[in-house]
Design a binder for these strands. Sequence first.
DNA 1: TTGCTTGTTGTACGATCGTATAATAAGCTG
DNA 2: CAGCTTATTATACGATCGTACAACAAGCAA
Lengths: 197, 197
Amino acid sequence: MSKSGFTRAEPDARRQSLIEATASVLARDGAGGASVRAIALEAGVSPGLVTHHFGGVDALIAATYAQIGEQVSAALDAAVAGAGNDPRARLMAYVAASFLSPIADRALLATWTAFWGLVIARVEIAALHDTQYARYRDALEALLGACGLAPAARRRAAIAITALVDGLWLELCLSPAVLDATEARAIAEAQIEALLG
Amino acid sequence: MSKSGFTRAEPDARRQSLIEATASVLARDGAGGASVRAIALEAGVSPGLVTHHFGGVDALIAATYAQIGEQVSAALDAAVAGAGNDPRARLMAYVAASFLSPIADRALLATWTAFWGLVIARVEIAALHDTQYARYRDALEALLGACGLAPAARRRAAIAITALVDGLWLELCLSPAVLDATEARAIAEAQIEALLG
DNA sequence: TTGCTTGTTGTACGATCGTATAATAAGCTG
DNA sequence: CAGCTTATTATACGATCGTACAACAAGCAA
């Protein structure tokens, strides 16, 4: 047992805990509060570790964005996988998952808006955003194709659904008094029904 | 003619120029770059003026948000006013204006995302957001009512359109390569047609 | 003109920012 | 055990942050 707080960890494990601390700080204090010191305090380590493991706070924030994007994709894919074989049910499961935990979460929204703000000023964050959203669209296009939508119409439909879900998710998180998860899902399902004809 | 840069202005005019400078800085550098010094430099005045006219940088940012919200509402209302008397045309004009200048603007998006980020951490900004969006919904509900939509269905339809337009507008500004104004408008119009039945 | 109000500037203060760096401690190899 | 690598801490440095404050200047009243 060491007398100080010095505990050595695997680099990957330490990077992971720093990423989780960054997400927590972003959720609690927004982008303005995500300083190296605040993140290090949240993770229970010294500020120098951020430089040591990530080279700078910018790379840490980008890594946090990438990981949260992965988690969102994984949650959506899991929802589809658990929805059985009916194409329509799989599509609806994908959409409905956006309004449930862990995606429809105020902390996740805080992280997301922080990154939207960074997309403007930082090219590497913008590239991450484009990659993430292309992935969502691809997943949606596959689900729409399984529902029988013509290939020529898939791209536009995927964009429409992504936009609708994003907007509903945003309002659901920003103003829970205006919109709840049940109604968001009902709205999305009705619009998608119209889209599939 | 004074030998220094000292020029006296009406308080309202000076406040206005500080608000415009804040919007410019937010658009160029994002929320992280909107410091008192950067704003004062943009406005061509001394940093002390921010404290003198607004009491602090927080109030200046809130005032900027409120004013931009007013401008967006005014642009939308003007689009409706110029659309003639057909209810359907008026509704579509309202929606289409969201994808045109001055609303579909990268600078405006930067300002908006900056405020979304602030909604999480600051209660007074959240209240401003709720007020703004309630106003948009009310305007949409009136337009939907003129199109013959039953009163019971108007609220949900207004939420759906607001969400769809927000999501399309966001993607249009963040990733112009993926989506242009013409396609955003086409997507929105098709969805609204389905909504009106 | 003189005096008063107030918009404006310039600067200074303490706090916090990101990052660099030297010292230290843990774990591995020999 | 000795020696090496490196994860970690603690601290320091310069820059920038928001705000306070005293001095100054412009316009108006008398």
